[in-house]
Design a protein around this nucleic acid. Structure first.
Lengths: 209, 209, 209, 209
DNA sequence: GATGAATGAGTGTTCATTCAT
DNA sequence: AATGAATGAACACTCATTCAT
């Protein structure tokens, strides 16, 4: 009726605040509507149900993030394969990938609220395990890399559970920044140290020192 | 009923199952009582409220774990200080502390259910951030260690946020094992790799290689 | 949209399907519109309200059926009066009216869906008792016939409630066929037996044997 | 709390009135509770859900009625088999079973409200087709009888659909009385005529005259 | 002719909690 | 030590209907 699309936006803004405050399960649609100044019926005109409302906030950022990660790993894989051919097998270098990571951080912080919703406020919704998907992709990538290293170094393959944990830690590192470091600037300052630490782990695990 | 305390135990057993299955928030006291074969009134005789019931399951294990960790760090701190005096400043060695870690794992798995409740099923209760306390203690310990290293190596002190993250990662490593690796044996097999990775991070972060 | 009346027809078709599936009360205008590919507003352009939409489907068939029955009884009444004069009072014969009944069945099955809507799916609407009107007309007719017979046979008049019940049964017989026998052919095969049974009732009730 | 069992009874009384007035679907649990002077929570202490509340009113009467009918048909079957042996095949007599029917009517009217609920107010609940079960039992009984008659008279067996319809009519006759004749006395007066009519149908259908 | 937006009252159901007995 | 009864607020969701455009 009134100003076009305004209601939907008010609803989404109100929903974001409520989900952020209480999490998916404890959030009340009644409260969301009240704060948006609309009736519950209006909400159901725009959204199928509670989950759809939540999805309207996080689905797109999630998809974008997914694509960024997938693309990144693809290019990194290419890079490593080239690197392997050129260099002698003993001196693989782990990319202290500041550039890519910095990009990721930028995206992450540009969707600050939405990422928080996904990471910490989605319990009870179908998004409650979306971090796991990131971990899964990461795991696939690291499994490949690990195989290359082990082959080159004549080591037995690394235990799959270990790779899974490392993937988990890497993804969690970003989640950690979001949930514990409010400002992007601050995050950017810490990030190099985190990367340094994480690559240190790789080197040691594969006996490079 | 007959044997005193039997009701309370039935209630706690039933509660554990329900909390494990649905998490704190989604667990229903009605269901817990029904499965225990008692009325809700009985529950409220033994427990103040929902949170108190949850606490009855996790508080003690949490406290024990807390003590173990605190004690461990105290003894480790002593050990490091001695070590510092004895050795020259350049060659600090990070304890790849298999013994202590293995002990922790044993305790962790002896309270498997309770730890899962704390780590993964406590959202909505006052225990939802209890991991943070572990992280805090760990952080204090690592802050000390970091200061010693930096002093010895004439480096500027490490950013507090980085220390906090590292502490987080170390605690999460144990949580990860619990939530992803069902059997203790399996966990013990993975643990050395995890420790190796984590100490590798320390070495690199403080430029030991 | 383009071709006028197309929307209305789509709406009615969709409504018929929904009413058939769920009955008047449980049918949802939302669903009807969705399946017709129109908005609720469009529905309210063509129809006053839910009941009006239902009426658009069944009113005309109902009226036609009403007229057929009324006409039929009128002609039958004439026939009986003639018959009475010609014959001696003892030998009234009940028309095992196969021809008329077969005609009725044909009409009934030509409006199969609409009749089902009226008979079995109209609860909650103003049509929920439309069968009663058929019964009423039938009752008037049979009351006359009963009076003629009783006069001729010097019997006391038949209890009005009994006549009402018989009328009810006769109408229900047709309703039964519609709701229990899908095909017209099958119905036509059963119909003679039903008529035979019903006329048998008349003979016995009025002590013809 | 207060007077034992009073609340449940008030609830059931209130529910009966509401279901009678509006039918199962349109009845509102809120209204029922309000009129009983209790909160909705109280209702759910005594009854699982809306259907359970409805069942608490009609299940027992339904079961009793079912038993009466089953028992009746069993004894009637015995009677007919004896009768067959004694008499010559040509002169089967249909029991104008006033005694049994009168008994049924008495039971029916002693549960007047409940039977009305079952017959006319149960749409939307699991009881909406309970009449069909009565018809089914009746059908089985009449199928047997029909076979006996046809065998004795060297007729082809009667069409199953016809038997089904007759069963339907017989059951509906009782339902009709309940829904159209308020007083039991009045019903008892009409019943003999109905039975006479129905047996007349049998005689004619099987060509006894 | 038809849309898109919105209303507001309503639904059945579940919840943790209380308390007289 | 425990029961059985009851509260009352909250929940997500659906409904027929309205109306400016």
């Amino acid at each position: 009726m009134q100003n076009e699309k305004e209601t939907k936006e008010k609803l989404m803004k109100s929903a974001k605040a409520e989900f952020m405050e209480k999490g998916y399960m404890s959030a009340s649609l009644r409260t969301i509507c009240k704060k948006a100044g609309v009736t519950t019926g209006a909400l159901y005109f725009f959204f199928k149900d509670k989950e759809d409302l939540f999805a309207s906030l996080v689905q797109e950022p999630l998809d974008k993030m997914m694509k960024i990660i997938t693309d990144h790993y693809e290019s990194e894989t290419d890079h490593i394969f080239e690197h392997i051919k050129d260099s002698d097998s003993e001196n693989i270098e782990f990319a202290d990938d500041f550039v890519a990571s910095s990009k990721a951080i930028k995206l992450l912080y540009s969707y600050y609220d939405e990422m928080i919703l996904l990471i910490a406020k989605s319990q009870g919704s179908r998004f409650e395990n979306s971090m796991d998907k990131f971990v899964s992709i990461t795991e696939k990538h690291y499994t490949k890399i690990s195989e290359i290293i082990c082959t080159n170094k004549n080591m037995p393959n690394m235990d799959a559970n270990v790779i899974h944990w490392i993937s988990h830690v890497h993804i969690e590192a970003f989640a950690y920044l979001l949930t514990h470091v409010k400002s992007e600037d601050e995050a950017e300052k810490i990030l190099p140290h985190i990367i340094k630490y994480l690559t240190g782990g790789w080197y040691r695990l594969y006996d490079f020192f």
